[in-house]
Design a protein around this nucleic acid. Structure first.
Length: 524
RNA sequence: GGCGGUGUAGCUCAGUUGGUUAGAGCAGCGGAUUCAUAAGCCGCAUGUCGGGGGUUCGAAUCCCUCCACCGCUACCA
C-alpha cells in the first residue's frame, strides 16, 4: 500500500519573542490540516521549529547577560510548552541551532556558491538590527527603519550576494504555470506584481554578526538568518546527506505562513530551490493577522496575548475552535474576549454541547443508558452526514477552515432539528412507538459519533470527550476515527459534565468592555 | 504617485456571468414545547446595498466621479 504523503510546515519562529496568538494561529491551522490528512490516511510530516540565529538574538542574550545558547534554549522551551498545551501534533521540531541543520546549511551554501549563484559584492547603506534588514537611503522613514521606526546603522561591508535577479524569469514562468502557487489570490497578485518589477540580488551574509552559521568559504561571515531559516524546510528532511525523508516528502504540499513573510517564501525561497535544482513547494498559503480588541499587536502596547492564559480560562479546544472559526483563513481577524465567549456559548455550548447532553439524557431515560441497536438502513441522518463529510473534505482541501466548521455546524443544527421533528419524548409515552424511538435515538447517537470525528482535527480533546460520554471509548484508548465504522451494539453511555458550560459575563460594574469570565477552568 | 482591494441589517459578513418582494450567523423581540447547559425548535424585523451621476426595460452587481479605510510598491524630502 502506497500511502499518499503530505508534507506541511509552519515558519520557524524567531525566538526573540515569546509565543503569542499569531504564532499559535499558524501552528494550530497547520495542526488541523495535519490531523485532517492523517484522518485521510495520508502519510503526514508536519514540521515546525525555531529560528535562533542573528544579531537581534545575540543582543537580546547580551542584554540579559546570557550566552546566546542559554538564551535561545529558554525561549525554545516556551514554544515547545505552548505547542504541547495546544495539542500540536508536529512530527519534528527543527531548531536552526541543531547540528543537523547547521551542517546541512553549510553544505547547501557551498553548493549555491559552486553553482555560481553566490558572489562577493559590496554593500553600502543602512541596516536595521532589530529587523535584520538592509534599507536604501530612500527607503528610510525620516532616517529611521521604515518597518519598526527605530534607528538604523550605517554599514559598508563586503557581503556575499545571491543572484536573485537571475531567477526572475523562471519565477514569473512558475507563477504563470501555477496560478495557485500562492494563496489566497489577492496575495498572489501582490507578490506577482513585485516579481515582475525589477529585482535586485540580495545580500546573504553578515560580517558583523557572529551568532550565526559561518559561511563555509569565508569564516569572517555568517549566513544571513533568513537564508539559514528558509533552508529548514529541506534540512529537516535530511537534505542532502540522508535523503530518505526528503525523497518521500518533498516537495512540500504547503507552507503555511503569515503575510509579512511572503516575499521570502514566494520569491527568495523558490529562487534558492531553483538554484539547487530542487522542485518547488506546491503551495504557499498566506494567512492574515490578528488584532487584539481592535488593536494591532505590538510590543509597545504590550497587548500581545499569551495563548496559555486563554486556554487556562477557556480550554485548548475552545481556543483552537475560535481562531479557525472566527475568520476565513487568509484574511485578518480580531480577537476579543466577547467574541470568544460568544462563540463558546452559542456554537460550542448551545449547539454542540447541548446536543450531546440532551441525546445522552434520552438514552438514559428511555433505554437505561444503552444505545438502542443501530441499523444503517434506518439511519435517517446518514445521507446528511455523508454530504457533510464530503463538503468538509472539499473545504479543508483548500484550507478553508472556517467554512469547514460552518458545514459541520450545519449538520449539528440538523441533528438538533431532527430531535425537534421526531419528538422522542412523545414517542416514549407509548410502547407502540418503541421501534420508532429506537430508530431516532440510534440515528442520533450515530450522528453524534460522526460529529466527533468531523471536529477531531479542530478539537481533538472534545472528540475524545464526546466518544467517552457516548460510551465508545473506555479508559485512555485513542478515539475512533473511522467515519465509516458504525457503532457496536449495546454501548452504555456515560453522561459526564457538559462539554462547554455557559460562560456568564461579569456584571457590568467594571465599566470595562472586555468582560473577563469568572472561574471556569477547563481541561480541554 | 502607481497598482490592487474594501465600504451591504446593531455586530461580523454572503451576494454567481446585471433580472421577480437584497440574504446568513450573532445580538434583539414574540411563540409553541420540555429530552437538554434559561439550552434547542418555530416565527419576526430593520437595511438611502459609502455619496453623486450615467448605461439599461431593469444594477448592490457594468461605466464615470467623489469620499473613507486598507494592502503592495515607488518617489520626494
Amino acid at each position: 500500500m502506497n500511502k499518499q504523503s503530505f508534507y506541511l510546515t509552519t515558519p520557524i519562529y524567531y525566538v526573540n519573542d515569546i509565543p503569542h496568538i499569531g504564532h499559535s494561529y499558524t501552528t494550530i491551522a497547520a495542526d488541523v490540516l495535519a490531523r485532517y490528512r492523517r484522518l485521510q490516511l495520508c502519510d503526514v510530516f508536519f514540521l515546525t521549529g525555531t529560528d535562533e540565529h542573528g544579531q537581534k538574538i545575540q543582543k537580546a542574550a547580551e542584554s540579559c547577560s546570557k550566552t546566546p545558547h542559554d538564551f535561545v534554549d529558554t525561549v525554545v522551551s516556551k514554544y515547545k510548552n505552548v505547542w504541547k498545551s495546544l495539542n500540536i501534533s508536529n512530527d519534528d521540531f527543527i531548531r536552526t541551532t541543531d547540528d543537523r541543520h547547521v551542517q546541512r546549511v553549510k553544505k547547501i551554501f557551498k553548493k549555491l556558491f559552486e553553482n555560481g549563484d553566490i558572489y562577493l559584492g559590496e554593500y553600502e547603506g543602512r541596516y536595521c538590527v532589530p529587523c535584520e534588514s538592509f534599507w536604501t537611503e530612500t527607503q528610510l522613514d525620516d532616517g529611521r527603519c521604515p518597518e519598526c521606526k527605530r534607528a538604523v546603522e550605517k554599514v559598508k561591508e563586503k557581503n556575499y550576494f545571491f543572484r536573485l535577479s537571475k531567477y526572475q524569469k523562471q519565477l514569473i514562468e512558475h507563477y504563470h504555470k501555477h496560478p495557485e502557487f500562492v494563496q489566497p489570490e489577492s496575495r498572489r497578485n501582490e507578490i506577482f506584481q513585485r516579481i515582475i518589477s525589477p529585482i535586485e540580488d540580495i545580500s546573504i551574509s553578515r560580517s558583523a554578526v557572529t551568532w550565526g552559521i559561518q559561511v563555509p568559504m569565508d569564516t569572517t561571515h555568517t549566513i544571513y538568518v533568513w537564508i539559514d531559516a528558509l533552508l529548514n524546510y529541506i534540512t529537516a528532511l535530511g537534505y542532502d546527506d540522508d535523503m530518505t525523508l526528503f525523497q518521500k516528502f518533498w516537495p512540500a504540499n504547503v507552507h503555511i505562513i503569515g503575510k509579512e513573510i511572503l516575499w521570502f517564501h514566494g520569491a527568495i525561497w523558490p529562487a534558492i530551490l531553483m538554484s539547487l535544482n530542487i522542485e518547488l513547494p506546491l503551495k504557499i498559503f498566506t494567512h492574515g493577522w490578528w488584532t487584539i480588541e481592535g488593536q494591532k499587536i505590538s510590543k509597545s502596547l504590550g497587548n500581545a496575548i499569551d495563548p496559555l492564559s486563554i486556554i487556562h480560562l477557556y480550554g485548548t479546544d475552545a481556543y483552537r475552535y475560535f481562531l479557525l472559526r472566527e475568520v476565513p483563513f487568509g484574511l485578518d481577524g480580531n480577537f476579543s474576549y466577547s467574541a470568544l465567549i460568544s462563540r463558546i456559548n452559542s456554537d460550542l455550548g448551545n449547539d454542540l454541547g447541548n446536543l450531546l447532553q440532551r441525546a445522552l439524557t434520552m438514552v438514559e431515560k428511555y433505554f437505561d443508558a444503552a444505545i438502542p441497536e443501530y441499523s444503517e438502513d434506518e439511519d435517517e441522518l446518514k445521507e446528511s452526514s455523508q454530504n457533510t463529510c464530503d463538503q468538509i473534505n472539499k473545504e479543508l482541501d483548500n484550507l478553508q477552515f472556517s467554512k469547514a466548521l460552518e458545514v459541520i455546524w450545519e449538520f449539528i443544527g440538523k441533528a438538533n432539528r431532527f430531535i425537534e421533528g421526531k419528538k422522542p419524548w412523545t414517542l416514549a409515552k407509548t410502547s407502540a412507538h418503541r421501534p420508532q424511538l429506537e430508530r431516532v435515538i440510534s440515528s442520533l447517537a450515530k450522528a453524534i459519533k460522526d460529529i466527533s470525528i468531523f471536529i477531531y482535527p479542530f478539537m481533538p480533546n472534545t472528540c475524545v470527550e464526546i466518544q467517552k460520554q457516548l460510551g465508545i471509548l473506555e479508559g485512555d484508548e485513542p478515539p475512533c476515527l473511522e467515519y465509516q465504522q458504525s457503532m457496536r451494539n449495546g454501548i452504555i453511555v456515560k453522561k459526564g459534565n457538559p462539554l462547554f458550560p455557559r460562560i456568564e459575563k461579569e456584571p457590568e460594574n467594571s465599566g470595562k468592555e472586555t468582560t473577563m469570565p469568572s472561574m471556569n477552568k477547563k481541561t480541554f
